[in-house]
Design a protein around this nucleic acid. Structure first.
Lengths: 341, 341
DNA sequence: GTGATCTCCCAAAGCGCTTTGAATATCTCA
DNA sequence: TGAGATATTCAAAGCGCTTTGGGAGATCAC
């Protein structure tokens, strides 16, 4: 069913029908009623492609999901982020276009989105410290919002981020308060902006208490369960092992726990653990008492905020373009005072 | 840069330029060279919307990701499935359109994809035993592939599935071989087709050995870590607790393990555990020796197969439209002979 | 009653591409 | 050499929608 067919059916011009359906005022209420009724009855919906061509708006947002070529990994937070974004999109009539690409040819994906003109804007995921996509998209002049920040960016850009520095500073302070001095940090990949900020928060907290940071306690890499386990095993095998571990992801924390328990130790008593928690839907951190002491911020909420911001930008609304979410520190069972044995 | 601009630049007609770029034979090699060079130089790429309108093909595939309204959950396997599908799409020039909807108004999402004509086909996720989407899409006549099957469907449909029955049958047999008699099943939601098949496999194996299945040992629900933990705790608190547990998802298995270890028991010695493993990228089941004994099949591979099948269907290629993948049973550290104490 | 103002509707152009049908230039071979 | 075949190119229509610029009636002010 096309617009023309529908209008023939009604004995009206396509113009009038289009206007009736799109809520323009230059059509009488009586005909509008008739038109909408007929549209519903015949299951008519405007062809997106034709409408997009006519209006110049694709009514779609692009997300480029990079897959680490080396590790064949897709970051699990994307699922929840896109779920949050998806809510906002469907509420606003936007589609979400996903492009899953190896991180080698990510730029190509952005260029393609921009030149093929099939999206009105895009969300940038997982920015690095010195992310080239920002100047690139600035040059292309396509609206975008960054999920995270890029510390070395020179030009302004729209972003939604969590206060990673503060979150890890507070977490480290808590561990210090509990008497821990040797605190390990299992972080994300070093070139990622969030990892750098988390590390900065960790180091700032240590420095403020006069505790020297020890490179032998700091790691960065893919945040997998296996990685968490392996690093923990080797950390705890050191002659002077840490008494507390700070972890950048819940999934990694699961591995850390496995490592701790394999050694017959108890998390929270023998080794304390604080993790960053994205509040993933299938991995809620306990209902009443959190299993893990965690610094938490919902990545789904971040998805909602970022996508709403992007839609506002596209529509020329001038709402704030920089949103810093604070993580909340939740005390759970994985932390305890430094044991003196 | 539009086609017209480019053709003016070259002193050629849009027709010729279009044909040159799309590899039609009625254009000389010399001009084709010139045209492609100019296109590259000016960063020209055809406007997707216009092309879609002209060709009648959207070059996009729709995925409807349902969010359980009750639990606000997005199934973590989607991330890996879409990663696999995404590979195939980008290789074939397709975009992936994601629609994240509450499972209440899922049908609306399908209808909208179909009537708005912005996709050429779609992938159906998480089919239930008696899935209404299959007759619905058959009626609409839009190409689709189901990831999974729907046991009660009457009409034929294209699908890619894992042999869930066989996988759980073998897993149960292994546990029986190890001497376990009381084997619990922590399954997915009951109305899901995969859950029914897994249960069937489990029950068949028990029946074949003359072991009565005990409803007190069978559960179904959302496959979260917390759920796994809580069910395990209550199972092991029963007067006649199971000595082995069969779990439908890796994430749930993590929770089961937590439950087991909280009680001071050791997985694989005191309680055996076999889990279904989707081979999620961030949750690999050990490198050398699997942590969990598991029946494994890569959901990413399923994504690749399903999307390729759909593209073949769209292009009228008659390749097989039913693919049954076999899961492999991997022996890990979470299973051991029934302890006699 | 007449010009001005609304109301409601329509014809036609245009979005940027593909594709049909035709035109022109070039070859071929008797 | 010239008719027919072949190789290149082009003009124009059309995909299904929105939107501009009118235009016919009805309504209003005087």
């Amino acid at each position: 069913m096309t617009l023309k067919e529908l209008s023939n059916l009604l004995g009206l011009s396509p113009t009038t029908v289009s206007r009736a359906l799109n809520g323009y005022p230059e059509v009488s209420e009586a005909t509008r009623k008739k038109v909408t009724a007929a549209a519903r009855a015949h299951g008519y919906a405007p062809n997106t492609r034709a409408r997009a061509l006519a209006t110049g708006r694709a009514m779609a947002i692009g997300h480029v999901i990079p897959i680490s070529a080396k590790h064949e990994m897709v970051n699990p937070v994307f699922a929840d982020f896109t779920a949050g974004a998806g809510e906002v999109y469907s509420k606003n009539g936007y589609d979400m276009l996903l492009s899953v690409v190896s991180d080698d040819d990510e730029e190509q994906a952005y260029r393609s989105f921009a030149t093929k003109r099939n999206v009105d804007g895009m969300i940038i995921h997982a920015p690095s410290l010195n992310d080239q996509r920002i100047p690139f998209l600035n040059k292309l002049g396509i609206p975008y919002v960054v999920h995270g920040r890029s510390s070395n960016a020179t030009a302004p850009y729209a972003w939604v981020d969590v206060n990673n520095t503060r979150a890890f500073q507070r977490a480290t302070e808590l561990l210090l308060d509990l008497g821990h001095k040797r605190i390990a940090l299992l972080n994300g990949l070093e070139h990622m902006d969030f990892a750098a900020r988390r590390r900065a928060g960790y180091e700032a907290a240590l420095a403020a208490r006069g505790v020297a940071s020890d490179p032998a306690l700091m790691f960065s890499g893919e945040m997998t369960e296996a990685q968490g386990h392996d690093l923990t095993r080797s950390l705890l095998a050191q002659p002077n092992p840490p008494s507390a571990i700070l972890v950048s992801s819940m999934i990694m924390a699961i591995g850390v726990r496995r490592g701790i328990e394999e050694l017959g130790l108890t998390m929270g008593r023998d080794v304390s653990l604080i993790t960053y928690d994205d509040d993933l839907s299938y991995f809620r951190n306990g209902k009443d008492i959190p299993v893990y002491t965690a610094t938490r911020s919902s990545v789904r909420e971040a998805g909602r905020r970022a996508s709403q911001m992007l839609i506002d930008i596209i529509n020329g609304k001038d709402s704030p373009t920089e949103v810093l979410l604070e993580a909340e520190l939740m005390l759970g069972m994985s932390t305890g005072p430094m044991s003196r044995d």
